[in-house]
Design a protein around this nucleic acid. Structure first.
Length: 830
RNA sequence: GCGGAAGUGGCGGAAUUGGUAGACGCGCUGGACUUAGGAUCCAGUGGAGCAAUCCGUGGGGGUUCGAGUCCCCCCUUUCGCACCA
């Protein structure tokens, strides 16, 4: 790229320095040990939360401390955040970079069961190991504010949070179906059910109904959606949230019918296509729909019951995944409010009770699922929308679902309406007739927080025979999770805590009679939905988050984490923040001002996994290459937001770069005299600009490439670099390789920490090129290059270009057109 | 099936708004230094061709003076979610 500089103004080069007999070589292990010790002694990574003038909260998603130890993926994520935080510090911010542990949950519990140990013994050991590994990576973490969700001083406030939601009527109990594995005797998450079988025991999974606690997140759906427009987040993450919330605008339509006794009743359906109502030729209810009982005629009763039984037996997943349409006619008919014709009422499991109203109108002409159903059961298919170049008689081989080009037919007075207009007009018309209303529906459903497990914070509720459901008084928090030996789930289907009377039998806080504690624990997502509020207030036992420090440090300035949490964790955190805001506890609604998702790294093209045996243990690499070279390699192997491919062989590249940096400082120290080279200084300032632009974009791989490029210029032809050429590079490298930066900072005679200094300033005058290479094209093909001043005019450029025989030989006649992009290119069209 | 992301040398990957395709690194080749080199340094490295030149960003069309980048169709990989009415 920069051979222009060399070609036109060769760099001054001097003979290589004679090898010094006592020259120092780069010893990362010694340097890293030394600086980690000094950082600790001097409190270099401590942030004065009270006195900070320019607070910058650089948060990263906290890890789950597994027994296998720190995953290189964790380190990839944390290093990216650390670079950003260190850079912001050098830009003059007071950066707070806390880290903690998300240590409750099913993974720890299952692992503890597997190895026959108790999570209360296991987790602290895992945390200690993680701590050691994280410290060896040289992160700028203020460990004084470390937290662990399993610590009673933390989950005391997780329980407090539950009580706040309970007080506001946002926590409630309802029956919900869960996947149940009769062999493992436990509730399974959807992801643990594969093809209707338990992923571990291969046993067919059943459905069970349990009373569970829910949070009314659906009430916040509109705000969760709207605010997405205002926050500075990765687009991919916002899109994922938007899709998850799933707003759909439509209408609720009412179909009148009569039950088997002759009584009037109504079936409500939700539809996004009210314009197709004239094509509704049948209705379908979910098998669980409450009206099924009343609408089933005696002749159909046997078949309907059998079908409902069959549905019940299937687990949730296979029901939702099998595409073969099944169903049974109930014997009853409803009146289509538009056509006023009778249409049959069916039941089928492709209609889900939990979405919409649990009933649909079947419009086979314009919905593919309805089309398949109608084909199978020979129900009438009527076209009510035509596309371009179609008419009412064009046969339908599949459902016609396009809206934009559609025009209505077979729809009475609405014939000829465009689909969009028809939606409004028909809803208006039916609303007047009392059989419709416009409705906005969200896919997002309430958050189930109950877990019939042991390893989580107990839900702070007491059931009393006379007082009912009583919240544990705040002064009695935390409800401590007791140490029990038998934390394994059993066939009872209730939480392990429900086997311990000595724990769950307590006095009712209201009446003093014997009550019973809630024995379910809460979801881990609740632990992590508020931890960012806690960090600045770690150590405060009287409040979950202290008011002043919270106002000063939150919302989080920058949050970085994996896109696998794009939906649940981030959505729940936003919800909890909104709830606390509405309760007057916080003065902001959105917890994370800026969020960026990082990518994931794979190894040699394959996903890292224990079964493949290709997991990278960071310890060995740090031991062999040094933490700085390892950090730098992780950031260099691909774009941070996309991840990349970890290849052992490639680490030598970043290590070599650091070796050369170290050597440059050694050789320049012995060479104090002379002036810095003009073209090297120009490259230096171009590098400062590039690195300063790339770090905020998290484009670390290109920032490192730019520094390597500079290194090549700096040492070209074995020249001896000047101090002024090398010194700013120490700071540029410091966010990536903090230990070596500190060492070289000290070696160049500076005092204190490089991180208490300032980012090098960029001088545009020094970075400007005297001559630039103008590309000359003829008919769009590159035919030559000319060196010209950056402000050369089109005329002058054309003259210079035509002077080049390689160009002029393609220009036989007068140019038809000339395209000139100043400073870049000249295209002669002949 | 729906939604997101992505397809560029031997490999990982560069390429603000359409403007030199392949920066930087690995690997490879040659050379220097060396008792030695799996150390270090220097140089070269998309393909074809002696060369001029031609061909090249998953495939096929299109827009443009000019397309990795924009538009249309198709293929592949990958990650979420599973009939969302």
């Amino acid at each position: 790229m920069d051979n222009s500089a060399t070609r036109n103004e060769p760099l001054s080069s001097s003979a290589p320095p004679p090898p010094s007999p006592n020259s120092i070589t780069y010893d990362p292990q010694a340097i890293e040990r030394k600086w980690q010790r000094i950082w600790q002694e001097r409190g270099t990574n401590h942030t004065d939360l009270q006195r900070a003038q320019r607070p910058f909260y650089a948060l990263m998603m906290f890890p789950y401390p597994s027994a296998e130890g720190l995953h290189v993926g964790n380190l990839f994520a944390f290093t990216g955040n650390d670079i950003y935080g260190r850079f912001q510090r050098l830009m003059g911010h007071n950066v707070f970079e806390p880290l903690g542990y998300d240590a409750f949950g099913i993974h720890s519990e299952n692992y503890a069961l597997k190895v026959g140990q108790h999570p209360m013994d296991l987790i602290p050991r895992n945390i200690a190991n993680f701590q050691r590994q994280l410290e060896s990576a040289g992160l700028m973490v203020d460990w004084r504010y470390r937290l662990a969700t399993t610590d009673p001083s933390y989950y005391k406030w997780t329980q407090w949070l539950f009580l706040q939601l309970f007080k506001q009527g946002l926590a409630y109990k309802k029956q919900a179906a869960v996947n149940w594995c009769p062999d493992c005797k436990t509730v399974l998450a959807n992801e643990q059910v594969i093809g209707g079988l338990c992923e571990r025991s291969q046993t067919p999974v059943e459905q069970r109904l349990l009373e569970q606690w829910f949070f009314r997140i659906s009430e916040y759906a509109p705000k969760l959606l709207e605010n997405l427009e205002r926050i500075d987040w990765s687009d991919t993450t916002r899109t994922a949230q938007r899709n998850w919330i799933g707003k759909s605008e439509g209408a609720e339509l009412v179909f009148a019918t009569r039950d088997t006794e002759g009584g009037e009743c109504e079936i409500r359906v939700f539809t996004t296509r009210p314009d197709t109502i004239y094509g509704a030729t049948y209705m379908v209810l979910a098998p669980e729909h409450p009206l099924v009982e009343r609408l089933t005629k005696s002749g159909e009763r046997r078949d309907v019951s059998a079908y409902r039984e069959r549905t019940k037996k299937r687990d949730i997943i296979t029901r939702k995944t099998s595409i073969e349409k099944t169903g049974i006619f109930t014997g009853s008919y409803a009146i289509n409010p538009a056509t006023e014709k009778e249409i049959p009422i069916w039941i089928s499991d492709y209609v889900l009770m939990e979405y919409g109203t649990g009933a649909i109108m079947g419009v086979p002409g314009h919905d593919q699922r309805d089309f398949e159903f109608a084909k199978k059961f020979d129900l009438p298919i009527v076209r009510v929308v035509c596309g371009e170049r179609e008419d009412v008689n064009t046969p339908l081989h599949e459902a016609f679902t396009e809206c934009e080009s559609g025009t209505l037919v077979n729809s009475g007075v609405f014939d000829g309406f465009r689909v969009e207009n028809a939606k409004k007009a028909i809803v208006e018309f039916l609303t007047k007739a009392g059989s419709a209303k416009p409705v906005v529906h969200y896919r997002l459903h309430d958050w189930c927080i109950s877990r019939q497990r042991y390893w989580g914070p107990p839900i702070p509720i007491i059931y009393c025979e006379s007082c009912g459901t009583v919240p544990v008084p705040e002064k009695d928090l935390p409800v401590v999770l007791p140490f029990i030996e038998d934390f394994k789930p059993d066939d009872s289907g209730v939480s392990p805590l429900a086997r311990h009377k000595e724990w769950y039998l307590v006095e009712c806080p209201k009446c003093g009679k014997t009550g019973r504690r809630e024995t379910d624990v809460s979801d881990t997502f609740l632990d992590s939905a508020w931890y960012f509020l806690r960090y600045p207030s770690v150590g405060r036992d009287d409040v979950p988050f202290e008011k002043n420090v919270t106002m000063k440090w939150l919302p989080v300035t920058s949050y970085i984490g994996g896109n696998e949490h794009a939906v649940l964790h981030l959505l729940y955190s936003r919800f909890i923040t909104m709830v606390l805001h509405d309760a007057g506890q916080l003065d902001f609604e959105e917890p994370f001002t800026r969020f960026r998702a990082h990518g994931h790294i794979i190894r040699e093209g394959a996903k890292m996994s224990k079964t493949q045996g290709n997991i990278v243990n960071p310890d060995e690499y740090i031991e062999h290459w040094g933490a700085d070279a390892f950090r730098m390699y992780l950031m260099f192997l691909g774009p941070y937001d996309q991840g990349g491919d970890f290849r052992d062989q490639s680490i030598s590249g970043t290590r070599r770069f650091l070796d050369r940096l170290f050597a440059s400082v050694q050789s320049m120290s012995s060479d104090g005299g002379g002036e810095p080279d003009h073209s090297v200084m120009r490259k230096l300032h171009q590098t400062i600009r590039k690195v300063s632009e790339d770090i905020p974009r998290l484009s670390y791989n290109t920032a490192i490439a730019a520094m390597m490029e500079y290194m090549n210029v700096l040492r070209k032809g074995e020249r001896t670099p000047h101090r002024d050429e090398v010194f700013p590079l120490i700071t540029l490298v410091s966010p990536f390789a903090p230990h070596i930066a500190e060492e070289l900072w000290e070696q160049t005679g500076e005092t204190g920490s490089v991180f208490d200094s300032a980012w090098p300033s960029f001088d545009p005058a020094l970075a400007a090129e005297d001559l630039i290479e103008l590309v000359v094209q003829v008919n769009g093909k590159v035919r030559g290059r000319v060196m010209v001043a950056p402000d050369t005019t089109e005329k002058a450029a054309l003259v210079a270009a035509l002077a080049d025989p390689a160009v002029s030989k393609f220009v036989a006649s007068a140019p038809r057109k000339v395209v000139f992009v100043p400073g870049r290119l000249l295209n002669i069209v002949v």
